[in-house]
Amino acid sequence: MAQATFRIWRTQPGGGGAFQDYQTEVSEGMVVLDAVHRVQAEQAPDLACRWNCKAGKCGSCSAEINGRPRLMCMTRLNSLNLNEPVTVEPMRTFPPIKDLVTDVSWNFRVKKTIRKITPRPPDAPDGTYRFAQRDADRVQEFRKCIECFLCQDVCHVLRDHREFNEFIGPRFLIYNAQLEMNPIDTADRLQDLKDKHGIGYCNITKCCTKVCPEHIHITDNGIIPLKERVVSRFYDPVTRLLHMLK
């Protein structure tokens, strides 16, 4: 069986950390998460990482592999160059907890600041709503999100500019988008998007879309349409006037 080297980030108890190399056996069909588990079982029982489903469904095992934000359970070793060490490090945008585990609690707090769904009355007394599949389609694309936060990790507004108080990040822009496009919702989130959630900070670099493991068109189908709605509400003179009269 072949050997490969995994250069894994280990935090140190007092703070800080360093890469450490682990050689381990690799076999056909393995993914990065398997290699990390093998290192854990054989060489470093206290190596910390998150995972649940091993099938790309829960969004727990996010990390940066050879510098790219990815799910460890969906990154096959045969897609990487094993002649060189494979680097595995935590998402750098979030505060470290231990080794590959980061503190993503900010994301959970941000979600609470977004106005929840406010449904119109149902179409029948038993609670049935009626709407067409094509109206469901665009919302369902965003609801595929597994909350891996890889898009948050890669977005420069958060990663480099640290605008955690001003900007909610791509994950929560599409969270807004699915609510705004939900056929039964009646709430209005545009003011918040502009003032509280910092949609203006996004300059459509599309890095978020590139890393999304669910292949959600975060920018084209989510952020851009939201930006257009914000612009036409607040910056287009005619709609602004109409809105003021309402």
Binding site: K116, I117, P122, Y129, A136, Q178, L179, N182, I184
Partner: peptide
């Protein structure tokens, strides 16, 4: 559905 789920139609 009233809580935001969007099932296939």
């Amino acid at each position: 559905e009233a809580w935001g789920a969007v099932f296939d139609r």
